[in-house]
Amino acid sequence: MSSGDSGPSSSKQLVQQPAAAGRSPNQPPLLGAGGRKVIVLKSGDEEEFEVDLLDAMQSRTLRRAIEDGCGDGPMPLPNLTGPVLAKVVELFRRHRGDPRWADELQETEKEGMFKDYAPQKPTAEVKGFDREFVSVDRDALFDLLRAANFLEAPGLLDVTCDAAADAVMNMTVEEVREYFGLVNDYTPEEEAALRKQHEWAFQ
């Protein structure tokens, strides 16, 4: 487990749990198990997830929102569904201390908030989790890609983009179009000219 210092308590606190209803928006961030700060993320289909504040900071989008003081009440994420958010939250927890984003965090550090977040190399276990994370079908992969696109979390982006690149690695142009649902917007002449340019115009 890559979580450096949080102890066994943190590994269980993030299971899906309905958040306390009727909390006033001005309440300070919740204290989760082990006394860590947590925030609540609310998916588009009204599912709520408690996330360790520091894990949520992996996402640049969430970090901006937290820094703007939106982290007090449940944070609505209307374009993510519950199942996707559950997967992403689990990935955040596993990527705790990942140098890919922890370095970035050190730069924007305020008030020694992240001082116990020493970057550490992803272990084999985390890599295994990452592989498992993206061994899904195409539609599910695109759900994750869109989530990564929205949340802007480096680890999530790396994992999902690598998987998408691997998926199209040995495809023809037509297969790639079909896979991504893209429409060929070239005229036949344009496409022929493009193919030819590779031969004579440059290397």
Partner: peptide, 14 residues
């Protein structure tokens, strides 16, 4: 949706 879907699917272009 074994893994859940995004809500804003917009046309066929993924």
């Amino acid at each position: 949706h074994g893994h859940g879907r995004l809500l804003a699917a917009d046309g066929p272009d993924l």
